[in-house]
């Protein structure tokens, strides 16, 4: 009896991730994915922004190098 119960619990424990994967898959199938046009637009917007901010940041870092030489 007790054995059966623990079996059930193990089964439940195993079921949880499986169910999670199943639910997730279902959700992903229902998802509306971006088409190529929308996707390129997003990649361009994020990419340009990301690289632009990065270049500003890197310029700051370059200014930093001589300052480091002076104070260290």
């Amino acid at each position: 009896m007790a054995n059966e119960k623990s079996d059930n619990q193990i089964e439940k424990l195993m079921d949880a991730p499986l169910e999670f994967v199943k639910d997730g898959n279902q959700f992903l199938n229902k998802c509306k994915k971006p088409d190529l046009k929308e996707y390129t637009r997003i990649v361009r917007a994020v990419g340009i922004g990301f690289v632009a901010v990065g270049i500003i940041g890197y310029a700051i870092k370059l200014i930093h190098i001589p300052i480091r030489y002076v104070i260290v």
């Binding site: 690289v51 270049i55 700051i60």
Partner: peptide, 17 residues
């Protein structure tokens, strides 16, 4: 965080140091 990460990315790719 975003700004620093993007800076690191740029430095790792086209960093001239």
């Amino acid at each position: 965080n975003t700004i620093v990460i993007s800076t690191n990315f740029v430095a790792d790719t086209i960093g001239i140091t």
